[in-house]
Design a protein around this nucleic acid. Structure first.
Lengths: 220, 220
DNA sequence: CATCGTTTACTCTAGTTAGAGTATTTGACT
DNA sequence: AGTCAAATACTCTAACTAGAGTAAACGATG
Protein backbone atom coordinates (compact mmCIF):
# COMPACT_ATOMS: atom_id res chain seq x y z
CA UNK A 1 0.00 0.00 0.00
CA UNK A 2 1.71 3.17 -1.11
CA UNK A 3 1.36 6.16 1.13
CA UNK A 4 -0.77 9.06 -0.04
CA UNK A 5 0.98 11.87 -1.88
CA UNK A 6 -1.62 14.20 -0.49
CA UNK A 7 -1.26 15.22 3.16
CA UNK A 8 -5.01 15.84 3.20
CA UNK A 9 -5.42 12.09 3.11
CA UNK A 10 -3.46 11.75 6.34
CA UNK A 11 -5.41 14.61 7.89
CA UNK A 12 -8.65 12.74 7.20
CA UNK A 13 -7.28 9.66 8.95
CA UNK A 14 -6.22 11.67 12.02
CA UNK A 15 -9.64 13.33 12.22
CA UNK A 16 -11.40 9.97 12.07
CA UNK A 17 -8.97 8.69 14.70
CA UNK A 18 -10.56 11.28 17.00
CA UNK A 19 -14.12 10.47 16.10
CA UNK A 20 -16.36 9.42 13.16
CA UNK A 21 -17.26 12.35 10.91
CA UNK A 22 -18.80 13.29 7.59
CA UNK A 23 -16.57 15.03 5.01
CA UNK A 24 -18.12 18.43 5.48
CA UNK A 25 -17.40 18.30 9.20
CA UNK A 26 -13.80 17.34 8.37
CA UNK A 27 -13.46 20.44 6.27
CA UNK A 28 -14.92 22.76 8.91
CA UNK A 29 -12.84 21.15 11.66
CA UNK A 30 -9.63 21.55 9.68
CA UNK A 31 -10.53 25.14 8.93
CA UNK A 32 -11.44 25.88 12.53
CA UNK A 33 -8.08 24.54 13.70
CA UNK A 34 -6.24 26.58 11.06
CA UNK A 35 -4.86 23.44 9.46
CA UNK A 36 -5.70 24.99 6.11
CA UNK A 37 -2.47 26.93 6.41
CA UNK A 38 -0.35 23.80 6.52
CA UNK A 39 -2.51 21.41 4.48
CA UNK A 40 -4.07 22.29 1.13
CA UNK A 41 -7.83 21.92 1.48
CA UNK A 42 -10.65 22.09 -1.05
CA UNK A 43 -13.86 20.17 -1.55
CA UNK A 44 -12.89 18.45 -4.75
CA UNK A 45 -9.80 16.92 -3.21
CA UNK A 46 -11.46 16.18 0.11
CA UNK A 47 -14.27 14.08 -1.32
CA UNK A 48 -11.92 12.38 -3.77
CA UNK A 49 -9.47 11.54 -0.99
CA UNK A 50 -12.24 10.19 1.25
CA UNK A 51 -13.50 7.99 -1.58
CA UNK A 52 -10.00 6.71 -2.25
CA UNK A 53 -9.46 5.86 1.44
CA UNK A 54 -12.79 4.04 1.44
CA UNK A 55 -11.74 1.96 -1.57
CA UNK A 56 -8.56 0.98 0.23
CA UNK A 57 -10.75 0.08 3.24
CA UNK A 58 -8.82 2.38 5.54
CA UNK A 59 -12.16 4.00 6.38
CA UNK A 60 -15.76 2.77 6.06
CA UNK A 61 -19.03 4.59 5.46
CA UNK A 62 -21.03 4.18 8.61
CA UNK A 63 -24.42 5.51 7.61
CA UNK A 64 -26.03 8.21 5.55
CA UNK A 65 -28.18 10.27 7.85
CA UNK A 66 -30.47 13.16 7.11
CA UNK A 67 -30.78 15.62 9.93
CA UNK A 68 -33.88 17.76 9.68
CA UNK A 69 -34.30 18.58 6.04
CA UNK A 70 -30.60 19.08 5.40
CA UNK A 71 -28.81 17.24 2.62
CA UNK A 72 -27.83 13.68 3.44
CA UNK A 73 -24.50 13.24 5.18
CA UNK A 74 -22.32 10.17 4.97
CA UNK A 75 -20.45 9.55 8.21
CA UNK A 76 -17.13 7.71 7.94
CA UNK A 77 -15.09 5.94 10.56
CA UNK A 78 -11.55 4.57 10.76
CA UNK A 79 -10.93 0.84 10.27
CA UNK A 80 -8.19 -1.03 12.12
CA UNK A 81 -6.10 -0.98 8.93
CA UNK A 82 -6.75 2.75 8.72
CA UNK A 83 -5.41 3.33 12.22
CA UNK A 84 -2.25 1.42 11.35
CA UNK A 85 -1.86 3.29 8.08
CA UNK A 86 -2.28 6.61 9.86
CA UNK A 87 0.39 5.69 12.37
CA UNK A 88 2.83 4.47 9.73
CA UNK A 89 2.38 7.35 7.31
CA UNK A 90 2.60 10.01 9.96
CA UNK A 91 5.71 8.36 11.39
CA UNK A 92 7.29 8.26 7.96
CA UNK A 93 6.54 11.92 7.31
CA UNK A 94 8.05 12.95 10.63
CA UNK A 95 11.06 10.70 10.23
CA UNK A 96 12.13 10.94 6.58
CA UNK A 97 13.06 14.25 4.98
CA UNK A 98 11.91 14.18 1.37
CA UNK A 99 12.77 16.55 -1.48
CA UNK A 100 10.21 19.32 -1.58
CA UNK A 101 10.34 21.25 -4.88
CA UNK A 102 9.26 24.70 -3.77
CA UNK A 103 8.37 27.43 -6.24
CA UNK A 104 11.16 29.70 -5.06
CA UNK A 105 13.85 27.05 -5.40
CA UNK A 106 12.64 26.44 -8.95
CA UNK A 107 12.59 30.18 -9.64
CA UNK A 108 16.16 30.56 -8.32
CA UNK A 109 17.35 27.74 -10.53
CA UNK A 110 15.86 29.49 -13.59
CA UNK A 111 16.81 33.01 -12.50
CA UNK A 112 19.41 33.24 -15.28
CA UNK A 113 16.59 33.73 -17.77
CA UNK A 114 16.07 37.33 -16.68
CA UNK A 115 18.80 40.02 -16.41
CA UNK A 116 20.63 40.32 -13.06
CA UNK A 117 19.37 43.83 -12.36
CA UNK A 118 15.76 42.77 -12.77
CA UNK A 119 16.34 39.75 -10.56
CA UNK A 120 17.84 42.04 -7.92
CA UNK A 121 14.81 44.34 -7.94
CA UNK A 122 12.43 41.38 -7.65
CA UNK A 123 14.37 39.81 -4.79
CA UNK A 124 14.20 43.11 -2.91
CA UNK A 125 10.43 43.11 -3.26
CA UNK A 126 10.35 39.53 -2.05
CA UNK A 127 12.34 40.52 1.02
CA UNK A 128 9.82 43.20 1.81
CA UNK A 129 6.92 40.74 1.54
CA UNK A 130 8.75 38.13 3.61
CA UNK A 131 9.46 40.65 6.37
CA UNK A 132 5.82 41.69 6.41
CA UNK A 133 4.66 38.08 6.68
CA UNK A 134 7.14 37.49 9.47
CA UNK A 135 5.97 40.54 11.42
CA UNK A 136 2.39 39.46 10.97
CA UNK A 137 3.17 36.06 12.43
CA UNK A 138 4.98 37.67 15.36
CA UNK A 139 1.90 39.75 16.06
CA UNK A 140 -0.37 36.75 15.83
CA UNK A 141 1.82 34.74 18.21
CA UNK A 142 2.03 37.61 20.68
CA UNK A 143 -1.75 37.91 20.89
CA UNK A 144 -2.36 34.24 21.63
CA UNK A 145 -4.64 33.72 24.65
CA UNK A 146 -2.94 32.95 27.98
CA UNK A 147 -1.91 29.32 28.24
CA UNK A 148 -2.62 28.43 24.62
CA UNK A 149 -0.72 25.14 24.05
CA UNK A 150 2.52 25.66 22.14
CA UNK A 151 1.88 22.22 20.63
CA UNK A 152 -0.72 23.79 18.35
CA UNK A 153 1.73 26.45 17.21
CA UNK A 154 4.49 24.05 16.21
CA UNK A 155 3.71 24.04 12.48
CA UNK A 156 3.42 27.82 12.42
CA UNK A 157 6.72 28.19 14.22
CA UNK A 158 8.32 25.83 11.74
CA UNK A 159 7.03 27.85 8.80
CA UNK A 160 8.30 31.00 10.51
CA UNK A 161 11.75 29.46 11.09
CA UNK A 162 11.97 28.64 7.38
CA UNK A 163 10.78 32.13 6.50
CA UNK A 164 13.50 33.70 8.64
CA UNK A 165 16.11 31.48 6.99
CA UNK A 166 14.79 32.54 3.60
CA UNK A 167 15.04 36.20 4.60
CA UNK A 168 18.67 35.75 5.64
CA UNK A 169 19.41 33.88 2.43
CA UNK A 170 17.80 36.48 0.18
CA UNK A 171 19.50 39.34 2.06
CA UNK A 172 22.85 37.72 1.38
CA UNK A 173 21.95 37.08 -2.25
CA UNK A 174 20.78 40.67 -2.75
CA UNK A 175 24.00 41.94 -1.25
CA UNK A 176 26.06 39.64 -3.50
CA UNK A 177 24.17 40.88 -6.55
CA UNK A 178 24.65 44.53 -5.59
CA UNK A 179 28.39 44.11 -5.16
CA UNK A 180 28.86 41.89 -8.21
CA UNK A 181 30.11 39.25 -5.84
CA UNK A 182 28.31 36.24 -7.35
CA UNK A 183 30.46 34.04 -9.59
CA UNK A 184 29.12 34.04 -13.14
CA UNK A 185 27.42 37.43 -13.01
CA UNK A 186 29.54 38.87 -15.81
CA UNK A 187 28.41 36.17 -18.23
CA UNK A 188 24.84 36.42 -16.97
CA UNK A 189 24.77 40.19 -17.58
CA UNK A 190 26.49 39.88 -20.96
CA UNK A 191 24.10 37.30 -22.33
CA UNK A 192 21.13 39.56 -21.66
CA UNK A 193 22.93 42.50 -23.28
CA UNK A 194 23.38 40.39 -26.39
CA UNK A 195 19.78 39.17 -26.36
CA UNK A 196 18.51 42.72 -25.93
CA UNK A 197 20.69 43.75 -28.86
CA UNK A 198 18.65 41.34 -30.99
CA UNK A 199 20.80 38.23 -31.10
CA UNK A 200 19.12 34.84 -30.87
CA UNK A 201 19.97 32.55 -27.99
CA UNK A 202 22.28 30.50 -30.15
CA UNK A 203 24.12 33.52 -31.56
CA UNK A 204 24.51 34.99 -28.09
CA UNK A 205 25.89 31.69 -26.83
CA UNK A 206 28.43 31.52 -29.63
CA UNK A 207 29.61 35.06 -28.87
CA UNK A 208 29.91 34.21 -25.19
CA UNK A 209 32.00 31.17 -25.98
CA UNK A 210 34.45 33.42 -27.80
CA UNK A 211 34.48 36.07 -25.11
CA UNK A 212 34.55 33.83 -22.06
CA UNK A 213 35.39 30.47 -23.60
CA UNK A 214 38.01 29.59 -21.03
CA UNK A 215 35.80 30.52 -18.09
CA UNK A 216 32.84 28.57 -19.42
CA UNK A 217 34.44 25.16 -19.28
CA UNK A 218 34.75 23.09 -16.13
CA UNK A 219 35.62 19.47 -15.96
CA UNK A 220 32.71 17.78 -14.28
CA UNK B 1 -3.85 33.60 -18.73
CA UNK B 2 -3.24 31.90 -15.43
CA UNK B 3 0.31 31.02 -14.60
CA UNK B 4 1.29 27.36 -14.56
CA UNK B 5 1.09 25.55 -11.25
CA UNK B 6 3.92 23.36 -12.44
CA UNK B 7 7.42 24.86 -12.40
CA UNK B 8 8.33 22.40 -15.16
CA UNK B 9 6.21 24.52 -17.45
CA UNK B 10 8.38 27.54 -16.72
CA UNK B 11 11.54 25.46 -17.14
CA UNK B 12 10.40 24.50 -20.64
CA UNK B 13 9.91 28.16 -21.54
CA UNK B 14 13.38 29.10 -20.28
CA UNK B 15 14.96 26.24 -22.24
CA UNK B 16 13.22 27.33 -25.43
CA UNK B 17 14.32 30.89 -24.69
CA UNK B 18 17.87 29.59 -25.13
CA UNK B 19 17.17 27.64 -28.30
CA UNK B 20 14.52 25.51 -30.02
CA UNK B 21 14.44 21.94 -28.71
CA UNK B 22 12.47 18.71 -28.76
CA UNK B 23 11.03 17.46 -25.45
CA UNK B 24 13.52 14.68 -25.00
CA UNK B 25 16.39 17.15 -25.29
CA UNK B 26 14.66 19.32 -22.69
CA UNK B 27 14.61 16.41 -20.30
CA UNK B 28 18.27 15.52 -20.83
CA UNK B 29 19.33 19.17 -20.58
CA UNK B 30 17.46 19.64 -17.30
CA UNK B 31 18.96 16.45 -15.96
CA UNK B 32 22.45 17.38 -17.10
CA UNK B 33 22.19 20.72 -15.33
CA UNK B 34 20.90 19.03 -12.16
CA UNK B 35 17.63 20.95 -12.34
CA UNK B 36 15.88 17.71 -11.50
CA UNK B 37 16.75 18.41 -7.87
CA UNK B 38 14.79 21.65 -7.82
CA UNK B 39 12.11 20.91 -10.43
CA UNK B 40 10.08 17.69 -10.50
CA UNK B 41 10.70 16.02 -13.85
CA UNK B 42 9.13 13.01 -15.54
CA UNK B 43 8.12 12.19 -19.07
CA UNK B 44 4.40 12.13 -18.52
CA UNK B 45 4.38 15.64 -17.11
CA UNK B 46 6.93 16.97 -19.59
CA UNK B 47 4.99 15.97 -22.69
CA UNK B 48 1.70 17.07 -21.13
CA UNK B 49 3.15 20.44 -20.17
CA UNK B 50 4.62 20.95 -23.64
CA UNK B 51 1.26 20.16 -25.23
CA UNK B 52 -0.51 22.54 -22.89
CA UNK B 53 1.94 25.36 -23.71
CA UNK B 54 1.39 24.68 -27.40
CA UNK B 55 -2.37 24.97 -26.97
CA UNK B 56 -1.90 28.34 -25.30
CA UNK B 57 0.38 29.30 -28.21
CA UNK B 58 3.27 30.13 -25.92
CA UNK B 59 5.33 27.70 -27.99
CA UNK B 60 4.91 26.30 -31.51
CA UNK B 61 5.90 23.01 -33.09
CA UNK B 62 8.53 23.81 -35.66
CA UNK B 63 8.96 20.54 -37.49
CA UNK B 64 9.02 16.83 -36.93
CA UNK B 65 12.36 15.55 -38.08
CA UNK B 66 13.70 12.03 -38.25
CA UNK B 67 17.44 11.80 -37.78
CA UNK B 68 18.89 8.60 -39.07
CA UNK B 69 16.48 5.88 -38.18
CA UNK B 70 15.64 7.29 -34.76
CA UNK B 71 12.06 7.96 -33.70
CA UNK B 72 10.62 11.20 -34.97
CA UNK B 73 11.29 14.28 -32.88
CA UNK B 74 9.10 17.35 -32.71
CA UNK B 75 11.13 20.51 -32.22
CA UNK B 76 9.39 23.38 -30.44
CA UNK B 77 10.24 27.06 -30.28
CA UNK B 78 9.16 29.98 -28.14
CA UNK B 79 6.58 32.45 -29.50
CA UNK B 80 6.66 36.16 -28.64
CA UNK B 81 3.78 35.59 -26.21
CA UNK B 82 5.78 32.74 -24.71
CA UNK B 83 8.79 34.97 -24.08
CA UNK B 84 6.55 37.49 -22.30
CA UNK B 85 4.87 34.76 -20.28
CA UNK B 86 8.24 33.36 -19.26
CA UNK B 87 9.40 36.76 -18.10
CA UNK B 88 6.21 37.50 -16.18
CA UNK B 89 5.90 34.10 -14.50
CA UNK B 90 9.52 33.94 -13.48
CA UNK B 91 9.32 37.49 -12.11
CA UNK B 92 6.25 36.59 -10.12
CA UNK B 93 7.86 33.51 -8.66
CA UNK B 94 10.94 35.44 -7.61
CA UNK B 95 8.92 38.35 -6.23
CA UNK B 96 5.90 36.84 -4.45
CA UNK B 97 6.32 34.38 -1.58
CA UNK B 98 3.47 31.87 -1.79
CA UNK B 99 2.32 29.32 0.81
CA UNK B 100 4.16 26.08 0.21
CA UNK B 101 2.48 23.14 2.01
CA UNK B 102 5.47 20.94 2.73
CA UNK B 103 5.09 17.38 3.99
CA UNK B 104 6.91 18.09 7.21
CA UNK B 105 4.78 21.10 8.08
CA UNK B 106 1.69 18.95 7.55
CA UNK B 107 3.21 16.16 9.65
CA UNK B 108 4.00 18.60 12.47
CA UNK B 109 0.45 19.90 12.44
CA UNK B 110 -0.87 16.33 12.80
CA UNK B 111 1.84 15.17 15.22
CA UNK B 112 -0.69 15.01 18.07
CA UNK B 113 -2.06 11.81 16.56
CA UNK B 114 0.91 9.78 17.82
CA UNK B 115 2.23 9.75 21.41
CA UNK B 116 4.89 12.34 22.35
CA UNK B 117 7.60 9.76 23.04
CA UNK B 118 7.18 8.21 19.63
CA UNK B 119 7.23 11.63 18.01
CA UNK B 120 10.45 12.40 19.87
CA UNK B 121 12.15 9.24 18.64
CA UNK B 122 11.08 9.95 15.04
CA UNK B 123 12.29 13.55 15.17
CA UNK B 124 15.68 12.36 16.39
CA UNK B 125 15.93 10.07 13.39
CA UNK B 126 14.94 12.97 11.16
CA UNK B 127 17.73 15.07 12.64
CA UNK B 128 20.23 12.36 11.83
CA UNK B 129 19.06 12.18 8.21
CA UNK B 130 19.05 15.98 7.87
CA UNK B 131 22.62 16.22 9.19
CA UNK B 132 23.74 13.56 6.75
CA UNK B 133 22.13 15.36 3.82
CA UNK B 134 23.74 18.60 4.93
CA UNK B 135 27.19 17.03 5.17
CA UNK B 136 26.73 15.50 1.77
CA UNK B 137 25.93 18.90 0.27
CA UNK B 138 28.98 20.40 1.97
CA UNK B 139 31.13 17.73 0.41
CA UNK B 140 29.62 18.29 -3.00
CA UNK B 141 30.15 22.06 -2.78
CA UNK B 142 33.72 21.63 -1.64
CA UNK B 143 34.60 19.47 -4.64
CA UNK B 144 33.26 21.87 -7.25
CA UNK B 145 35.77 22.55 -10.06
CA UNK B 146 37.82 25.75 -9.80
CA UNK B 147 35.87 28.79 -10.95
CA UNK B 148 32.51 27.05 -11.21
CA UNK B 149 29.96 29.92 -11.25
CA UNK B 150 28.21 30.35 -7.91
CA UNK B 151 25.15 31.40 -9.92
CA UNK B 152 24.51 27.73 -10.71
CA UNK B 153 24.71 26.78 -7.05
CA UNK B 154 22.17 29.32 -5.84
CA UNK B 155 19.22 26.92 -5.67
CA UNK B 156 21.30 24.29 -3.90
CA UNK B 157 22.54 26.85 -1.38
CA UNK B 158 18.96 27.93 -0.79
CA UNK B 159 17.86 24.36 -0.14
CA UNK B 160 20.82 23.95 2.21
CA UNK B 161 19.94 27.16 4.09
CA UNK B 162 16.43 25.84 4.64
CA UNK B 163 17.81 22.48 5.70
CA UNK B 164 20.04 24.12 8.30
CA UNK B 165 17.08 26.12 9.62
CA UNK B 166 15.08 22.90 9.83
CA UNK B 167 17.90 21.23 11.76
CA UNK B 168 17.97 24.09 14.27
CA UNK B 169 14.19 23.99 14.58
CA UNK B 170 14.04 20.23 15.13
CA UNK B 171 16.92 20.35 17.63
CA UNK B 172 14.97 22.88 19.65
CA UNK B 173 11.76 20.86 19.37
CA UNK B 174 13.52 17.66 20.43
CA UNK B 175 14.99 19.44 23.43
CA UNK B 176 11.56 20.85 24.37
CA UNK B 177 10.04 17.39 24.14
CA UNK B 178 12.78 15.83 26.27
CA UNK B 179 12.36 18.40 29.01
CA UNK B 180 8.56 18.47 28.88
CA UNK B 181 8.86 22.11 27.98
CA UNK B 182 6.22 22.25 25.24
CA UNK B 183 2.85 23.66 26.33
CA UNK B 184 0.12 21.04 26.00
CA UNK B 185 2.37 17.99 26.37
CA UNK B 186 0.55 16.77 29.47
CA UNK B 187 -2.77 16.60 27.65
CA UNK B 188 -1.09 15.11 24.59
CA UNK B 189 0.51 12.35 26.65
CA UNK B 190 -2.67 11.71 28.64
CA UNK B 191 -4.90 11.30 25.60
CA UNK B 192 -2.68 8.55 24.24
CA UNK B 193 -2.63 6.82 27.61
CA UNK B 194 -6.41 6.77 27.54
CA UNK B 195 -6.55 5.57 23.94
CA UNK B 196 -4.05 2.80 24.70
CA UNK B 197 -6.21 1.81 27.66
CA UNK B 198 -8.99 1.10 25.20
CA UNK B 199 -11.12 4.24 25.32
CA UNK B 200 -12.57 5.59 22.10
CA UNK B 201 -11.58 9.03 20.93
CA UNK B 202 -14.82 10.51 22.22
CA UNK B 203 -14.55 8.85 25.64
CA UNK B 204 -10.95 9.97 25.98
CA UNK B 205 -11.93 13.52 25.06
CA UNK B 206 -14.69 13.55 27.66
CA UNK B 207 -12.28 12.34 30.36
CA UNK B 208 -9.77 15.01 29.36
CA UNK B 209 -12.40 17.70 29.61
CA UNK B 210 -12.99 16.64 33.23
CA UNK B 211 -9.30 16.39 34.08
CA UNK B 212 -8.07 19.48 32.28
CA UNK B 213 -11.30 21.31 31.55
CA UNK B 214 -10.05 24.69 32.63
CA UNK B 215 -6.81 24.41 30.70
CA UNK B 216 -8.56 23.32 27.52
CA UNK B 217 -10.56 26.48 26.98
CA UNK B 218 -9.16 29.62 25.45
CA UNK B 219 -11.15 32.55 24.23
CA UNK B 220 -10.34 32.89 20.59
C1' DC C 1 -43.37 38.13 6.84
C1' DA C 2 -40.53 38.58 2.78
C1' DT C 3 -35.99 38.43 1.31
C1' DC C 4 -31.14 38.09 1.07
C1' DG C 5 -26.83 36.51 2.57
C1' DT C 6 -24.49 32.63 4.94
C1' DT C 7 -24.04 27.92 6.14
C1' DT C 8 -24.58 23.20 5.14
C1' DA C 9 -23.49 19.48 2.15
C1' DC C 10 -21.96 17.82 -1.60
C1' DT C 11 -21.26 16.88 -7.23
C1' DC C 12 -19.19 17.56 -11.70
C1' DT C 13 -15.84 18.21 -14.98
C1' DA C 14 -11.79 19.71 -17.12
C1' DG C 15 -7.21 19.65 -16.54
C1' DT C 16 -2.81 17.87 -14.46
C1' DT C 17 0.50 14.45 -12.95
C1' DA C 18 2.96 10.19 -12.26
C1' DG C 19 4.75 6.18 -13.75
C1' DA C 20 4.95 2.31 -16.43
C1' DG C 21 5.23 0.65 -21.13
C1' DT C 22 7.09 0.55 -26.09
C1' DA C 23 10.22 0.24 -29.69
C1' DT C 24 14.38 1.32 -31.97
C1' DT C 25 19.47 2.37 -32.14
C1' DT C 26 23.97 2.84 -30.74
C1' DG C 27 28.23 1.43 -28.57
C1' DA C 28 30.95 -1.52 -25.73
C1' DC C 29 32.67 -5.82 -25.00
C1' DT C 30 33.37 -10.55 -25.65
C1' DA D 1 30.21 -11.24 -35.29
C1' DG D 2 26.90 -11.50 -31.61
C1' DT D 3 24.79 -9.78 -27.60
C1' DC D 4 23.51 -6.85 -23.96
C1' DA D 5 23.09 -2.60 -21.58
C1' DA D 6 22.21 2.14 -22.15
C1' DA D 7 20.37 5.90 -24.64
C1' DT D 8 16.81 7.82 -27.62
C1' DA D 9 12.20 9.34 -28.10
C1' DC D 10 8.06 9.17 -26.94
C1' DT D 11 2.81 7.15 -25.66
C1' DC D 12 -0.77 5.60 -22.71
C1' DT D 13 -3.64 5.28 -18.85
C1' DA D 14 -5.19 5.60 -14.28
C1' DA D 15 -5.38 8.48 -10.66
C1' DC D 16 -5.41 12.80 -8.58
C1' DT D 17 -6.51 17.86 -8.07
C1' DA D 18 -8.72 22.27 -8.34
C1' DG D 19 -12.39 25.07 -8.71
C1' DA D 20 -16.78 26.15 -10.02
C1' DG D 21 -21.53 24.76 -9.68
C1' DT D 22 -25.87 23.16 -7.17
C1' DA D 23 -29.44 23.32 -3.99
C1' DA D 24 -31.78 23.44 0.25
C1' DA D 25 -32.22 25.59 4.97
C1' DC D 26 -31.25 28.76 8.43
C1' DG D 27 -31.05 33.37 10.47
C1' DA D 28 -30.96 38.21 10.49
C1' DT D 29 -33.02 42.40 8.91
C1' DG D 30 -36.21 45.81 7.40
Amino acid sequence: MKRPANALSLAVLTLLFEKPMHPYEMSTTLRHRSKEESIRLNYGSLYAVVESLRKKELITAREAVREGNRPERTVYELTAAGATAMHDWLSEMLRDPSPQFTDFEAALSLMGAIPPDEALALLRLRLKALRMASNQYDGLRAHMPEGFPALFLVEGDYAEALRLAEITFVEKLVSDLIHDRLGGMDVWRRIHELRDAGFTGEEANATLLEEYGDVLTWDT
